[in-house]
Design a protein around this nucleic acid. Structure first.
Lengths: 248, 248
DNA sequence: GCAAAAGTGTTGCCGCTACACCCATGC
DNA sequence: GCATGGGTGTAGCGGCAACACTTTTGC
């Protein structure tokens, strides 16, 4: 499979679990990275090496990514990476932008187009394809030092997510199909880093007609069971297109 | 000068003049395009050719752009293009995103990173470097058919500008250093495609402390002369960082 | 003096914020 | 029965939209 050597894709995959915003990172296999690509048709993570054939990180942790095949569009290939990393389809995915400092990869000139994705915690146990054994969720504020400029990519993606969440109702993608209003509120509190008034939050959400009562209730909790809601796809799609004020 | 063949940069340069939003386009020199690059150290527009050495457009109009040199960051090179096209520095410039469909350029796989810029009409007479004789401002709603996917790029840039203008005070970059409040209002009306109430608009703008009275007045107009304002850089920078509601 | 745009205040309504207590469930 | 989070209403304030007339200038 022919790739474009000077162009790669990286994906910032966000998750939300127990009031924490998470990002999915990959510990790259140093031996695989040091060796020539063995399985070039499969998902190929970074395969650039220094002139001596070594990869310049002891414990290379980074975003899932890879080089773009000449016959795949960048959007399609970002989706390939995402599906390989998570094992699921139909994920909210958007382009963040291109990172193109000359020295961002020390031993090669490569520009990376970065995407960000929102996935919901029903899929948290899924660990991607067998090629990627060492995928791990990291708290957004406990991300270690990563390869290349991947820390900067996450930072920028987070900034974008904070903006996005205020002008489009995208937050829902981080929740399971049925969720409580408290979960939704905690999501916004976490992403925006502020506290919200419960009563006011609920009024605002209900007025938007974005969520509908499923009639079902939480079970197995040591307190009053909460109603479960799902969000209304039709209203969502209407609101998602026309940029809309979602100040919660 | 070594370039990255699979990577190009394009710039959507917006201007505002007489209540119209404009975009700066370039009629590429077919003969220069058909021939090998004569002056590779200077601004080199698209130099891809079909296998027979011909450029596949009769009247190739498109965005100013070029292939990225291996030793320039994409941001820096976007600025180079912008300066070559306009002849001026210190322009508001931001990345829009990467366009990477496989067939976007019919005869070569090339991904383009697109930027958008806002320039003010004091510079309207400037026509860029001598290499680029055929630069022209086009009304945003009278853009002809362009090369490659440049029409789609402009459309996306416009959409982004509409969003941007509502969450950051970027509109000012489209105005001259001193401007009247009416000009400012017309700018917002044009970009957003809506009408605004003059009194309410002025109240809102003044309350933001973003514009300051220069004490000067318009001259040579066939009606009551308007006050000239400039915008306050300090307040602007404060507000520009923290995404801020600029609902006018 | 007339055409053309600048400039200016008030009122009513709506939406937002602030705020505290009872309810259901598991253990 | 107690600990834990679920769920609800109101009042006051501030901000926003709607709205019309006088002023200045060039010709």
């Amino acid at each position: 499979m022919n790739i474009i050597p000077s162009l790669s894709i990286d994906c910032v995959i966000f998750g939300f679990h127990e009031k924490k915003l998470k990002v999915l990172l990959l510990e790259y296999d140093k031996e695989q990275l040091d060796a020539p690509v063995k399985n070039p048709d499969a998902f190929a993570p970074y395969t650039e090496t220094e002139p001596d054939g070594k990869f310049p990180y002891e414990k290379p942790i980074g975003l899932p990514g890879g080089h773009v095949p000449v016959d795949r569009s960048i959007n399609d290939y970002a989706r390939d990476i995402l599906e390989t990393a998570t094992g699921i389809k139909d994920i909210y995915l958007k382009q963040l932008g291109a990172f193109g400092e000359t020295e961002r990869v020390s031993f090669l000139r490569v520009v990376s187009v970065v995407y960000y994705a929102l996935i919901n915690p029903e899929h948290y146990s899924i660990r991607g394809s067998s090629l990627l054994k060492s995928l791990e969720w990291y708290d957004i504020d406990k991300v270690p030092e990563l390869i290349f400029d991947h820390n900067a990519m996450i930072e920028k993606a987070l900034k974008r997510l904070r903006e996005e969440v205020q002008i489009r109702p995208v937050g829902f993608h981080l929740l399971p199909e049925m969720f409580t209003l408290t979960q939704l509120q905690q999501l916004y509190e976490t992403v925006l880093g502020i506290e919200l008034d419960t009563r006011n939050f609920r009024k605002k959400i209900q007025k938007m007609h974005l969520v509908v009562d499923t009639g079902k209730m939480q079970t197995g909790v040591a307190h009053r069971a909460a109603r479960l809601f799902r969000f209304d796809k039709k209203v969502y799609e209407m609101l998602a297109e026309q940029s809309f004020s979602f100040r919660v």
